[in-house]
Design a protein around this nucleic acid. Structure first.
Lengths: 176, 176
DNA sequence: GATTTCTGGTTTCCTAGGAAACAATGTAAC
DNA sequence: GTTACATTGTTTCCTAGGAAACCAGAAATC
């Protein structure tokens, strides 16, 4: 493959990434509308994708605390606290008090929250079904290649991250 | 390929997407440090990725106005105006006044802005070189497949977007 | 050439979320 | 047990950027 074609490939990868961003952006808008149509209580225009993601995580974990939520969502604890406050107001999640440890606050879904979780899951399943259809035309060998490729990409990105990490901490020492 | 493996593939795709997000996040931090090290004037901690992107776009276009910048960056015109205000203060860009059309404001890079543009380009080239190395181990046939696959993905995403778009505008009619 | 309409740019207002200081609890060391 | 330290969660402050109202030229229609 010529360098020119590789360049083209590089560009098309960036394009796909930006497309995915755009899709994510639209999902946000779609979500509120779908939620309203599904008759889920306490859905207002100010509903955020992050709120739904928190519901998703709590539903997935069964019960979870702020710090672990923050880790899973790569957000700050402060941000999670604020989101949870909103979700409590919506009556989608509730606190679990442990007698043993009063410091940690665990959250779980309410019945209403469970509805949101399931609705969102339903949406995810649709997306995955679309994905399966997308894979339809490809041969077994091609799909197998794709699978290993994705692993390689993931690995390469991890390595890149490490490299950047090291660059950053190296200069933190020398710089002010 | 079993459904289970397809599911796995779906998951790994999401993982890669999130990894790319994380990389982008780190780039932001790296950029400021690199810019300072390269001795570019008026680099402060409050330098934003968006500012650099605007510089990139202006540099690429030679000269461009607010509206087209907004389109290219999928941001609002208001946001661009604010970013440009900052860039003017940094002395990285400058206005071009047209005698013919006083309404449109075109921007171009200053000498300093050109430095930023070139530094950023240099970074991009490094990234692309890394990408080329990543492609190294694959066969011609595999790379050819990858190229067509990316095209297919892009097409599929466009279709998805259209579908969501239609869903959104359809319900805008019925809803309040 | 006056009035509507369109387009480009700016300003105002508001919110999501990061950073970091903080309080409160738990844990380890002595 | 008490002092030091670590960890969890909250609060405060601040900024990027969207939405939308707004203003100012340009273009079109009459």
């Amino acid at each position: 493959m010529k360098d020119h074609d590789k360049h083209h490939l590089f560009i098309s990868l960036q394009k796909v990434y930006h497309q995915l961003e755009a899709v994510e952006e639209m999902e946000k808008k779609l979500m509120v509308q779908l939620a309203q149509r599904w008759g889920i209580a306490n859905v207002t225009r100010d509903l955020t994708m992050s709120e739904v993601h928190v519901v998703e995580q709590i539903g997935h974990a069964g019960s979870i605390n702020v710090t672990r939520l923050a880790e899973k969502m790569t957000m700050t604890k402060g941000a999670i606290t604020k989101i949870n406050t909103k979700l409590l107001a919506r009556d989608w999640i509730e606190k679990i008090e442990f007698t043993a440890n009063t410091k940690e606050v665990h959250y779980r879904l309410t019945a209403m929250g469970l509805q949101v979780y399931q609705a969102h899951n339903h949406y995810h399943e649709m997306a995955e079904k679309q994905f399966h259809q997308f894979l339809q035309p490809y041969s077994e060998a091609q799909l197998a290649f794709l699978a290993t490729l994705m692993g390689d990409v993931s690995q390469a990105l991890d390595d890149s991250m490490d490299k950047i990490d090291r660059l950053l901490s190296a200069s933190e020492d020398s710089d002010g």
